[in-house]
Amino acid sequence: MTFTYSICHPEKKEIDYKNQHLSEEEVLEIAQNYPWEEKLNFMKSLGEKVYYNPSIDFKCIENGQSFCLTAMYDDQNKLMFSLWYNRPKKVKVLFGLLGESEKMVVDDFWSLNLNDSIKYLEYFVEKKYSKIEDLYKK
């Protein structure tokens, strides 16, 4: 599978879309090596001129699903992440009276550390989608 990605920088209004195609290994390398804490500390120095928390969104070219990691500090100033998983999901049309249809929905989960966030990103690139969906059922 191949992926593209985009980056939200705290100081930039425009999202930085990267058009290069990435392998599964490159996706994991980018997320693991991104300067998350450096970007968060820089964000603090911006005061009210912050556009985004540091974020990287990876999109699978083949199926259109995406997985985003967004960094923040918790109350104890520890690095934490929210995950945003954009996936197809069956939804009821008109309370189920007209059956079901499939549409893309975004599920989010908050307060994960870097290691756990990378683990779920690994599930994403390995197409182990049910393991990600289990996170949202907890």
Rank of each mutant, 00 (worst) to 15 (best):
Leu69Asp: 00
Asp107Gly: 01
Gly96Cys: 05
Lys103Gln: 13
Asn77Leu: 11
Lys90Tyr: 06
Cys60Asn: 15
Lys90Cys: 03
Asn63Ile: 07
Val50Leu: 09
Asn77Cys: 05
Glu62Ser: 15
Leu98Gly: 00
Lys59Arg: 13
Leu69Met: 15
Tyr51Trp: 15
Trp110Met: 11
Leu79Ala: 07
Met80Pro: 00
Ser82Gly: 15
Phe109Trp: 08
Val93Trp: 06
Asp108Cys: 11
Pro54Glu: 05
Phe67Asn: 06
Tyr85Gly: 02
Asn77Met: 12
Ala71Arg: 00
Phe109Ala: 13
Leu83Phe: 11
Asp107Arg: 04
Leu79Lys: 02
Asp108Phe: 04
Tyr73His: 09
Leu98Asp: 01
Val106Arg: 11
Lys90Ile: 01
Met80Tyr: 06
Val106Lys: 10
Trp84Asp: 14
Gln76Glu: 15
Ser66Phe: 04
Phe109Ser: 11
Lys89Val: 02
Tyr51Ala: 10
Arg87Thr: 11
Ser55Thr: 12
Tyr73Ile: 02
Phe58Ala: 05
Pro88Phe: 04
Met72Lys: 13
Val106Ala: 07
Lys103Asn: 08
Gly96Phe: 02
Lys59Ile: 05
Lys78Ser: 13
Asp108Leu: 07
Val50Trp: 04
Ser82Cys: 12
Gly99Val: 02
Asn77Ala: 11
Glu100Tyr: 01
Asn86Met: 10
Trp110Ala: 07
Gly99Leu: 06
Thr70Tyr: 01
Gln65Cys: 13
Lys78Asn: 14
